[in-house]
Design a protein around this nucleic acid. Structure first.
Lengths: 201, 201
DNA sequence: CGAGAATCTGACCGATCGGACAGAGTCTGA
DNA sequence: TCAGACTCTGTCCGATCGGTCAGATTCTCG
């Protein structure tokens, strides 16, 4: 029976490689990231990467899979019992939590989800987005659709890409002075304002 | 002296290749698009591509350059005389026009601007975005920043990426039933609501 | 017509890609 | 102790990449 130490050691290589791959994919893009690059970044050889993951695609799946699964669950539940303002509010909170908790994976998916068509895990994510869009669009006016689209896409892109955008710039200290909690509150506020009419609109 | 026909012929190859490259970059990403792919898509040989454009980077610059220049002008003017609601309103209208008029280029820049660092034309675009962010952030609360970020990023992503996202899906007929004018009006409305407080907020 | 520029292409180059594979080193449990 | 599984790496492979170059073809204009 493996001890705690060996379990940690065992799981470490695969986890380290998965995390390194996620960072590289988010920074340089899937196509522009080589297995050698990932291996170097994690401190292993290219062969080791291919020992732990059968292919570059398998590595992508491991890197973004958990985030996609969270998205599927969230969208699935929303697609059923939407309509009430309370349900919308709950969805907004969980959506923002997903963005904050899976920044890198969300960034990879959002920025490259379109160009990575054909890869199963990406296809699943795209399908989830489609379900979400469907739930939003059916029976809604163009203005309402636009409000929803701008809100969700805006929150996603402003948070995820924006954070990375200014990562190694002189603005760093400004951006990093905000905690995740600050961001969460501000984001939830904006989304609530956009999606849950306080007055009779 | 070249006739109209010859002028058309002369300019055509370069333009066709530029357009083909833009489409391929937007669809598959810069790194994942090969010169051979662009050549095939435009009906030329790979050598012809490199005859008209010195390198793959030069082709990217030709493809997204005009859109970046429009962005620079727009941001430059906004960064000076902002503050008034009228100025904001004018900015919103021109921003949406830019998005609608340069969909593909904007999509390339937005989705890959981060991973294509180091390429001069991309760096210029990133600098313009930074100027815009600066103009928004200085003296603004986090909530205001977030409102602006969500609005601009949301409009960009919802329109550009969203449009491409559903391009070859069963939703096509729904999305395409809206004209650019419809989209423009709806987008301007949402952005105005977010950025120009109608009531005393 | 004919010289020269402009356009286009196929053949070719070194580099790098994702991946296969055999073997070295390490760890585990009987 | 030792056989077998697990982990890791160096070497090698075919394919494809961006880019060079010489030559074929077409176009322009005196």
């Amino acid at each position: 029976m493996p001890t705690d130490a060996t379990v940690t050691t065992r799981a470490r290589a695969g986890d380290e490689l998965r995390q390194a791959a996620l960072e590289q994919f988010a920074t340089f893009g899937f196509a522009a990231t080589s297995l050698q690059q990932i291996a170097d970044h994690a401190g292993y050889s290219k062969s080791s990467v291919l020992y732990h993951y059968a292919s570059k695609e398998a590595l992508l799946e491991a890197a973004v899979g958990p985030a996609i699964e969270r998205l599927e669950v969230l969208v699935g539940e929303f697609a059923e019992g939407r309509r009430s303002d309370a349900a919308r509010g709950a969805f907004i909170g969980r959506f923002v939590d997903l963005l904050l908790g899976e920044r890198l994976a969300v960034h990879v998916f959002v920025s490259q989800g379109h160009s990575l068509r054909g890869i199963p895990i990406i296809e699943r994510g795209n399908a989830a987005i489609r379900v979400l869009a469907d739930a939003i669009c059916t029976g809604a006016t163009l203005a309402e659709q636009m409000r929803f689209g701008v809100a969700l896409a805006g929150a996603t892109y402003a948070l995820v890409a924006g954070a990375i955008f200014f990562d190694d710039d002189e603005m760093e200290e400004l951006v990093e002075s905000y905690t995740d909690d600050d961001m969460r509150v501000a984001l939830v506020d904006v989304l609530t304002e956009l999606l849950i009419p306080a007055d009779g609109r």
